[in-house]
Design a protein around this nucleic acid. Structure first.
Lengths: 219, 219, 219, 219
DNA sequence: GATGAATGAGGATTCATTCAT
DNA sequence: TATGAATGAATCCTCATTCAT
């Protein structure tokens, strides 16, 4: 609910107010988020200015601040919405039945939708890159990253029950790193090149992970 | 050749102590680059301010601009020097005799010094991350990256003579991406953790590349 | 007469429930003034934002501006109402019979209710401080101040009939100044400390005024 | 030393740098402080904007921030300089021999120079008023106020050795309050009116304090 | 060469006020 | 009436770069 950051609208007396107003506001929020997505993609999160976002959205700076208390809030909301859309669109990739399949199929089942989503929503990717200073992610990126990490660890654990937590963390971090750098390449290319890099990514992960999981999941 | 120090220094007038001048200038440049390295490491390239670099170097902003025309030039020169130092220090890793060894040994021979170098010179790493905007590297990063890429392609070619140029590029880009993201993890940890990530990196690359090269290099 | 609510309300059309309208409007005004009082107390007049007042009142900024044309009008109306309430509550302190009593009793009779009123209505005090710029009171403060001044001059005149108008003005201004600065101290403390400062105020005024009035009012 | 807020000028090698540069900077600082004094007087401290100060000084905002890290620093430096000037100009008013004189003479000896100073330097007064929110002085005002308070308490103690600390504090606070509000009146008027208010101030204080000190200091 | 002052556009953010619904 | 979105100038402050000395 980003539209009312100032809270306290006690809503006490005289009618509960129709939600027509919300409509315009919600449209503005979407507009602003779309503009932010564009600016984030073009300049990266760190270099994106709130004024540029407002300009791109065709509104005044003040309007932006009526809906978001600061720049990070925009990123948080945008990230949240993208994540939600990802779940809605490709969430079934992570269903238990998918996770039980042999590794090559699993990689296809998981990576294809995720890559597709990122290609359709490049802003998501811009958000994940953060400030470029390795040690200095902001909270939003931190959360996103550790969320993904946890998820990967979970899947990995089901594949390698014998692995220690430390090993799981190491491997998951590697997987995530490989995925991210490959996604850079995938997004930087188009058509056949893009497909080639997608295939390479799968090859890398397959060869990396196969020796760890053969006995368990390969029928 | 840092900065274009105003064409006036024709070396003809004031022959009293030209060597001195040059020496002092060179000292200043080193001073500034060392300061820049520190600032880049701490804050990243994008957030580093020229004033901060000058301050860290103990000189005035004006002095900095007497040796470098702008911020990027500092990065370019620093990157170049680090690269040169890398060559001097660990260049023998790329000697032909090294490149003929079997893959596991090759990975050790190449990665260990490179990783060591990056641990000792974290500024190099900060430079390679650049602005965090995937598609928008500046000239310096572009050069650095394509230089590395060419080199990797060269080594790879000697391993897989049958690969097409496109395949070489794809694989090299993947290798570089894997290396970069792993280096993130390596630099972000210390001691045993760092070693663990180093080992993982080698594992990933070994498994990725082995199927491509076995016939050629395995004796 | 708060706000100039758009001349359209000619009281001729819509005779259905004009009383209702007025009642609701009056409630809104009171609501807004109460909110303004709170905000003025917490942040001072200058730093109080109309949005904050509206929020505190639980209405939208637009609603606020339907009743008050601008920020100052809120202060004016609030000051007026507080003044009126002061009269209603403690007005008998200024009755002729009170003013005839000897000075110590008069001071008690006048100051005690005024202090009590200010302790109960700290917003009044916030309004009297205004912007903190000595020479630049706005209209509201000017009116408040000169109203008080006139009243003090009146009382003083009955005590010192021989004083020239200039002397009366000087002394009244001094009295008001002493009162205001003492009230600062009184409001800034509580309990015994507050009583102590109240006593000091009376002492100061008594000693200051006694020599001017002894012959007239001491029986 | 407001000219080098960024510190760290290690000043190591190659000559200790002539101080000619400082001269221009020092001039700018004075210029800025003069401008600040003007703006503070006109609008009060709280409402004074750094841009307005820079504009009044005829420089760009950036220049202001080369010498002062923020608005408060300007006030602190200005207050400090004014205080110092006050000491240099009228410091002898507080010499022990002065403080031993009978009360009427003491009041003259202390108040006349202080009033004169404030008339000549109205910015000092603007600084003492602070934000207008009684409870919310910033550190600078707090320090100034408590410094004055301590001093008044000291003098008072020599006059009324039998007074308890609490009484001393109460009385000193009253004195300070009376002085401040009177100074408002004094500064708001000119010529004969100003003198009249000065005389009133002395009268008030004399009558207030005389009963406390007669036995000790009146010969 | 070196200094440090100077610039000015741009950054995020606020707020009194107006407007369409 | 009431709403809340919209405005835009103003706030403080930063920074890459230039200039006079």
């Amino acid at each position: 609910m980003p539209g009312t950051p100032r809270g306290k609208t006690t809503e006490t007396e005289e009618t509960a107010a129709p939600r027509r107003r919300q409509a315009r506001g919600e449209r503005r929020v979407s507009q602003l988020l779309a503009a932010a997505a564009g600016v984030f993609c073009r300049t990266g999160y760190a270099a994106a200015s709130t004024n540029a976002i407002a300009r791109e959205a065709g509104v005044s700076p003040g309007t932006l601040y009526q809906f978001f208390p600061n720049k990070e809030a925009i990123a948080v909301e945008l990230g949240g919405r993208l994540l939600q859309r990802a779940h809605e669109t490709h969430g079934q990739a992570f269903l238990p039945e998918n996770l039980q399949r042999p590794l090559p199929e699993l990689l296809d089942a998981v990576l294809d939708p995720v890559i597709a989503f990122n290609c359709e929503n490049p802003a998501f990717w811009a958000l994940m890159h953060g400030s470029g200073i390795p040690g200095a992610m902001n909270q939003e990126h931190e959360e996103l990253h550790s969320g993904l990490l946890t998820r990967v660890e979970g899947v990995l654990h089901s594949f390698c029950p014998q692995a220690t937590p430390a090993e799981l963390t190491h491997t998951s971090n590697m997987i995530l790193g490989i995925f991210k750098s490959s996604l850079d390449l995938i997004l930087a290319h188009e058509g056949a090149e893009r497909d080639a890099y997608t295939a390479e990514l799968k090859t890398v992960l397959l060869r990396y992970l196969e020796p760890m999981v053969t006995t368990t999941h390969s029928p």
